[in-house]
Amino acid sequence: MGWYKEYKLVEDKMGYNLIIYLNNEKAEFSNEIIEDVKENILTLNDEINKFVEDKFSDIKINSVKLMLGAMVIGTIPFAGHVKVHAETNSPNQVQAAPVSFESNRLDTVGTVTASKLNVRSGPSTSYSIMHLLWQGNRVKVIGESGNWYQIRLSDGRTGWVSKSYLKLDVIISSRQEKINKVISLSKSLLGTPYVWGGSSLQDGGFDCSGFTQYVFKNVGVSLNRVSYEQANQGIAVARQNLEPGDLVFYSLAGDGRISHVGIYLGDGKMIHSPKTGDVVKITDITTTFWESRYITARRII
Rank of each mutant, 00 (worst) to 15 (best):
D12G: 11
D12Y: 08
K13I: 12
M14L: 11
G15H: 09
Y16L: 04
L22R: 02
E25I: 01
A27I: 11
F29S: 02
E32D: 13
E32K: 15
N40T: 02
N49G: 09
F51L: 12
K55S: 10
N62M: 03
V64C: 02
A70P: 05
A70G: 00
G74S: 15
P77R: 08
P77W: 01
P77N: 12
F78P: 00
H85K: 14
Q95E: 12
Q95D: 05
A97E: 13
P98Q: 09
S100M: 11
N104A: 13
V109I: 14
L117E: 10
L117M: 09
R120Y: 07
S121Q: 10
G122D: 05
T125H: 09
T125S: 14
Y127F: 15
W134A: 07
Q135P: 00
V141Y: 07
G146Y: 08
N147E: 12
W148P: 02
G156F: 08
S164W: 03
D169E: 15
D169R: 11
V170L: 10
I172H: 02
I172R: 14
S174P: 15
Q176P: 00
I179F: 05
K187V: 06
S188I: 06
P193E: 09
G197H: 11
G198P: 08
F206M: 06
D207Q: 05
S209G: 04
F211T: 10
T212S: 14
F216Y: 15
V219N: 05
G220A: 03
N224G: 00
Y228K: 10
Y228A: 03
Y228T: 07
Y228G: 00
A231L: 01
I235N: 07
A236K: 13
A238T: 04
A238N: 11
A238K: 13
R239Y: 15
H260R: 09
V261Y: 03
G262K: 04
Y264T: 12
Y264W: 10
G266E: 05
M270A: 07
M270H: 00
H272I: 01
K275R: 15
K275F: 01
T287Q: 04
I301G: 01
